[in-house]
């Protein structure tokens, strides 16, 4: 494996005519963990990744691997492994030959082709033409292409798409293993639930702009605390006096802007007995939908 580098996106923007696909996007991705790159369909994820890989020219800003643009990498496939949407194959070419073509272009030995075919579990079908492959097999072949140069950085666009449950389980442990080996792993998805179990950190974009960058746990703890008291009115007025946003729900008062501890302290000093005090656990998916601002389309 080559040395892992960070991915640095700085002030990145792209316009397709009047359409603003990506707008002033900045974030970084660190080695040794799996970073999820989330956003609804059409949020600009693929455009961002394609700019990072030198396939699409940014309108402004830069996207680099530790300061070096993709096109200036000395050994691109040995530095960055890429699996973009699963359709970039000639249907008449076998999987083995598909990989051999690009191994030759990158000066990678032919033995490596057999190794990655085995690694993603399609060695038995390697001499079949890709035209007859299922979507799941294409995803695996795409992943094999990404691994060809044994790169320190992996950029995977929607790798879970089209996989069966077994495949999803496989790729989750596979991603974790790659990160554990010290690689930088960036995985995009339009579904939080798809990557929730395998990512350490998330970057969320919506309408081409960054809306969240940080740990999943922080996203989950969220801003809402559920509290209730036999004397709900007294608790509510005390919370309102403390400047919190309070919403009465069937299960209690949903408090925004205070931590659980602060709510407890306010209740104590107001003399209100607490019958409920909890962080809202359904928050993660809800928080994601709130962030991307178009829950219905997901």
């Amino acid at each position: 494996m080559s040395t892992s580098t960070t991915i640095e996106i700085a002030g990145l923007g792209k316009s397709f005519g009047a359409m603003r696909a990506v707008d002033d996007l900045s974030f970084s991705v660190r080695p040794g963990q799996v970073t999820g790159f989330l956003g609804p369909n059409g949020a600009g994820k693929t455009t961002t990744l394609r700019m990072l890989l030198g396939l699409v020219r940014p309108t402004e800003g830069t996207a680099t691997f530790g300061g070096t643009e993709y096109r200036n990498l000395k050994d691109p496939l040995a530095t960055v492994g890429t699996a973009l949407e699963a359709s970039s194959f000639h249907p008449g070419r076998s999987a083995r030959n598909h990989l051999r073509v690009y191994a030759r272009a990158a000066g990678i030995g032919m033995k490596r082709v057999d190794a990655v075919l085995a690694q993603v579990g399609i060695a038995a079908f390697a001499d079949r033409r890709v035209g007859g492959y299922s979507l799941g097999m294409r995803q695996r072949l795409g992943l094999a292409f990404a691994l060809l140069g044994d790169p320190g950085v992996l950029v995977l666009d929607e790798p879970v798409n089209g996989l069966d449950p077994e495949g999803i389980k496989w790729i989750r442990s596979f991603l974790g293993q790659l990160a554990a080996e010290g690689r930088t792993v960036l995985v995009s998805s339009h579904l939080l639930s798809e990557v929730q179990q395998s990512v350490d950190r998330v970057i969320i974009i919506s309408h081409g702009s960054l809306v969240y960058e940080g740990g999943l746990a922080e996203l989950e703890s969220g801003p809402r605390v559920l509290a209730d008291s036999p004397d709900r009115a007294a608790l509510e007025s005390a919370l309102l006096a403390a400047g919190a946003d309070v919403e009465a729900t069937a299960g209690g008062l949903a408090v925004t802007g205070l931590t659980r501890e602060q709510v407890g302290t306010i209740a104590l000093s107001a003399g209100a007995v607490l019958s409920l005090l909890a962080s809202e656990h359904s928050g993660i998916e809800q928080a994601f939908l709130d962030l991307v601002g178009e829950g219905g389309s997901l």
């Binding site: 200036n72 496939l77 890429t82 690009y102 272009a105 990158a106």
Partner: peptide, 8 residues
Amino acid sequence: TPTFLATP
């Protein structure tokens, strides 16, 4: 896509 990834 794979062509330009291998040979930018």
